[in-house]
Design a binder for these strands. Structure first.
Length: 453
DNA sequence: TCTGGGGTCCTAGGACCC
DNA sequence: TCTGGGGTCCTAGGACCC
């Protein structure tokens, strides 16, 4: 493939603009990426050893589509994101083990893995539920691989979760090193100057971190097909067409860090809680119940990070995949009179919002709430004409949170979620999600502990 | 019949100001 | 034919991530 633009080097670009003034190209490999292998499927196996070596898949909420696969399931050709009904014949034919998502279990095992990692390296950045960037700067180059293998073995032994580790000069290269590490028996790869271009030549452009479908299509149209091509493409041209994100990715491929390791967890800038419904919802009353439930979850997250919200957005939609049915999507944003994390107030506001956008006659499929314009609860800007905040509200929420933490989620909840109306022997409301293959919460609920026979 | 949920960052463009 | 110009702030929407 012949590139249709001049090649690197072309040195006029201001590196400082892109890399926050970080000195170019440190000689050492300083960033590790630890990534759990097939994480959700691996979690399901931890307490069910009989699943080892069997094809296992984990489904999204409502058991809708495939969100994780064991290696065996991948081999059968079950693709990520596939709707379950499309792969049902494969599931039956090969007796694939099907699990509903159990995020309480995955979150808890994730915390254990991260805790072990944090004891082994000076600092780490938890990047997602199954990934963390590790500070390798202090580990001498010649022992990095063995150090990583030792850490990997410890995590497998202590938690049962397998993971791979890639080590490189930048986050983007560490992500790639991790992909390549997964294909090796050792599960570890430390990149060196001598080997890196060989690896990059064998890597498709769409497998580079932050190169999504759209940028990949554009790059391929212009002859940039591999990670190697992107590394040596003209940087002005990249800056012009892929803007800052593309330019940073290119520099990272060249070994210049543009995304520094950050170990402080920053508060989220917005918090969303939304779900697809287990079955279609028609009535406003049911939507209000669902929204009260989502608002409760969102407020819990809000208080957990010591924030208050100034704005709430409520949205609802019909099933966009059912093209023959009447479609309706709407959202509304309401500015709160003062920043708050008080669940009853947010539930009431969400109810006003949904009354405003609800249209009868539609089969609703999904709804949700987003809290935004978040501020710290320690530093609240007063409003000239608003009521001062009621300190009793804050105290009440603190008590509710601590009771629910101790006795279990929703021990105390707002009546608007409808839970009090429905004893356990009653059928669940139609908005509640469907989960027919959910595993026990082995590590987070006393009554679901694993038992030795 | 059946198609996830929760985030961040960046850019363009409008509103507004002097 | 010409119809200011430059700056800041805010928001919506796109692209991407897991």
């Amino acid at each position: 493939m012949v590139a249709t633009f001049p090649l690197f080097p072309d040195e006029t670009l201001d590196l400082c603009e892109l890399s926050f003034g970080v000195a170019p190209a440190p000689a050492l490999t300083t960033i590790g990426l630890a990534d759990c292998n097939n994480f959700y499927a691996a979690c399901e196996r931890v307490f069910r050893p009989a699943l080892a070596e069997r094809a296992v898949i984990v489904l999204s909420n409502n058991d809708g589509c495939v969100i994780a696969r064991s290696a065996e399931a991948k081999q059968l050709g079950i693709t990520m994101g596939a709707p379950v009904h499309e792969v049902m014949s494969l599931i039956k034919q090969h007796e694939v083990v099907v699990c509903s998502a159990n995020f309480a279990l995955y979150g808890d095992l994730s915390r254990r893995v991260m805790s072990i990692l944090s004891q082994r390296v000076p600092s780490l950045e938890v990047y997602s539920i199954d990934e963390a960037f590790l500070d390798f700067a202090a580990v001498p180059v010649h022992v990095q691989a063995s150090f990583a293998q030792n850490m990997r073995a410890q995590i497998k032994r202590w938690t049962g979760i397998p993971l791979s580790i890639g080590i490189a000069q930048t986050k983007t290269l560490a992500k790639l090193a991790n992909d390549w590490a997964k294909k090796r028996p050792s599960g570890v790869l430390a990149l060196s100057e001598e080997t890196i271009n060989g690896w990059l030549l064998g890597t498709n452009i769409e497998d580079v971190w932050n190169i999504g479908p759209r940028r990949a299509r554009f790059l391929k149209q212009h002859g940039v097909v591999t990670a190697y091509d992107l590394k040596y493409a003209n940087s002005r041209w990249i800056r012009q067409h892929l803007y800052l994100p593309g330019a940073r990715t290119q520099l990272e491929l060249r070994g210049v860090p543009c995304f520094p390791l950050t170990n402080t967890r920053t508060a989220k800038q917005e918090i969303t809680s939304s779900r697809s419904f287990g079955s279609p919802v028609h009535e406003l009353a049911d939507l209000k119940e669902a929204l009260a439930f989502y608002a409760t979850r969102a407020c819990e997250k809000l208080r957990a990070q010591h924030s208050l919200a100034r704005t709430i957005t409520v949205f609802l939609s019909t099933n966009i995949f059912r093209e023959t049915e009447p479609q309706y999507q709407q959202s509304v944003t309401i500015k709160l009179p003062h920043a708050t994390a008080y669940t009853p107030e947010i539930v009431n506001t969400a109810h006003r919002a949904v009354e405003h956008i609800y249209q009868p006659g539609y089969a609703y499929h999904k709804a949700g709430i987003t809290l935004s314009k978040l501020v710290s609860d320690e530093w609240v800007q007063g409003e000239l004409f608003a009521e001062p905040p009621d300190l009793r509200q804050e105290a009440a929420m603190t008590v509710v949170d601590s009771i629910n933490k101790h006795f279990g989620r929703d021990t105390i909840h707002v009546a608007a979620t409808g839970q009090h109306k429905r004893p356990a022997d009653q059928p669940p409301p139609s908005w509640q999600m469907k989960q027919e293959h959910v595993s026990p919460c082995y590590t987070t609920r006393w009554n679901e502990l694993a038992q030795a026979q």
